[in-house]
Amino acid sequence: MNAPPVIEATHLTKTFGHGHVAVRAVDDVSLTVGRGELVLIMGPSGSGKTTLLSMLGGLLRPTDGRIAIDGVETTQLDEAGLAKLRARKIGFIFQAFNLLEALSVEDNILFPAHLAPGGRTAARTRANELIANLDLGHRRRALPDTLSGGEQQRVAIARALINQPLVILADEPTGNLDSEKGQEVLMILHDIARDEGCSVLIVTHDPRVEDVADRVLWLEDGGLRDRKSDQHDWVRDPVCGMRVDQWTATRFAEHEGQRYVFCSQRCLERFEAAPAQFSRDTRPHDTNE
């Protein structure tokens, strides 16, 4: 990767409290994320994942170290500068979706648009594209409390993408979703990194994300450590390559006598449109890691 990194964090430390009660939530973490890269940060609860994500997103100031987003050192910015950076260069996806309850799907998606040059009017075409791509056309006027969890997260993703950010920061994006919806969301995030050139940083416990990630980082006791290995038993989705638990999967297709398992309806549809393209090289197989 020759291009300069989009995210560059150096010797990042965050300490909460003082003296005897001081807790180092993040301890001397350095990391870089390149354009279009999907990086997964895993680790046990309380390991500092969300604190790290908050600092990278300019929501929390580090105690020590520096962060640069697209070459702009965020640790040097004031509150207004950070707000501007967040609005224009970073998209956030939250575990609890955090949609604005009084606004419709379309208005939620357009909400950050007024913070970017051009405003809502300029963003309307982009919003229409996102609504169509994320299959939200029929829910355009719906209020968040009438949406399913998967729909809410798709709206949150569209909202994160409306200003065409360089970075997407996602905190447990599948945490409140069932297996199928979770896989669908992961597939969307995977496509965002690949198709939109966004750097996607995901904090999660969900091991399925490992298959779509370019890199997996393990955070424990505030510091990045060697990744731990786990035993898994999965079959692969022939379209996206994501591992799918065939006992819980609900999307299947038969082609030339072979049975294929899919993570989402999206992958199934892509497969059905051109089965030869995906069945040529890929065979479902069990993995024991």
């Binding site: 997103g57 707000a83 967040r86 939250f94």
Partner: peptide, 14 residues
């Protein structure tokens, strides 16, 4: 509170 915090996170100024 939560929605205002979300708005701030998304880049809305104080």
């Amino acid at each position: 509170r939560r929605e205002l915090a979300v708005a701030k996170a998304l880049g809305v100024r104080n």
